[in-house]
Computed example of a mutant assay.
Amino acid sequence: MENQRINHLYFNKQRLMAKFNILLLTILVLNSIGAYACSCVNRGLTENFQQSEFVAKAKIIKITPDPKNEMYHDAELELIAVYKGERLKRIKITSELNSSCAFLPAVNSTWIIFAAKWQGVLSFGFCSGGLNFSRTFDPVKYPNGGLHYFKRMALQQQVLEYLSSNKLLNPNPLGLDTFNHELLTIKGFKNKDEIAVFEVDLTTDLSISAIRNVKKFENEALTKAVFDSMKTDVILVKPRNKTTPKPTQMLMFCYFFEKDTGESYVSLF
């Protein structure tokens, strides 16, 4: 009996060890998958614009696999607006279908495309920052998701139109992040959804020497409230000990956005 009890305990221990090993292997596999999951640095709209050679709003009318390189697909475009670069009718998609960065937009979908050269190939892909104007939302799960999303897209498009019409290829040449938390207190104004633009003079140590409002909001009282805040509460996030050889300029874009509830806010994002 004692031997049977010892054998029973031994086999139970073996089963537990086997289960533990399976669990450990599962965790390692999941961690490995997570480690190789596609991740992108969120550079923001102006950074994507600066680092791209071709920026356009276009409808993708045809997609075919690249016959020479399975990493790419070829896309034929119907151009709606070109913000930077030549008026291209064809472009590469970095599709990478066998990777965690797989990306293949739908035929007849409309995008703002940010395309840059990588290994000599002009293309756009998962991490390019493209804006999808054909995105759909579940009306039950996200009853106002589409409304907010497309309002935000329209404001971003205003930024690109401003940069393009004024031939401004490097609106933020040093890639500085900007914050103004006081803007969140500016509420209750009536205005159409639009952007304001501020031109900022920077010294060699990247301190702000002057700010000018070069594109104003339609509402004069809103314009004054935002400008007063921008003159006193802007924070620049810059690398430690970063300097520039000469004084320079950058642009900041301020967005006015009114929710469907009638609430409004202004933001640098």
Rank of each mutant, 00 (worst) to 15 (best):
T110V: 15
G120F: 11
S99W: 06
V82Y: 04
K117R: 14
A102F: 11
V82W: 04
I91H: 00
C101R: 08
Q119V: 07
N108L: 08
I91S: 00
L122D: 03
S99V: 13
A115G: 02
S109D: 06
P105K: 04
S109R: 12
I112R: 03
V107H: 11
R87S: 15
V121Q: 01
W118D: 08
K92L: 07
P105L: 14
E96Q: 12
Q119W: 11
T110W: 11
P105V: 05
Q119S: 12
C101T: 09
V107G: 10
V82H: 08
I80Q: 15
P105A: 13
I112T: 15
L104K: 06
K84M: 14
L122C: 11
T110G: 11
I91F: 00
G85I: 04
K89V: 12
G85R: 10
R87V: 13
R90N: 13
A81N: 14
A102W: 09
V107S: 12
R90I: 13
Q119T: 14
K84A: 07
L88D: 01
L104H: 03
A102S: 13
T94Y: 08
A115R: 00
F114M: 01
T94N: 13
R90T: 15
F114K: 02
I93Y: 01
G85F: 05
R90A: 09
G120P: 10
E96R: 11
V82D: 00
G85W: 04
S109H: 10
F114I: 06
G120D: 14
A116N: 06
V107F: 07
R87P: 06
V107I: 14
L104T: 09
L88V: 06
V121W: 03
L88Q: 07
Y83D: 00
E86W: 12
T110Y: 10
S109G: 12
C101I: 10
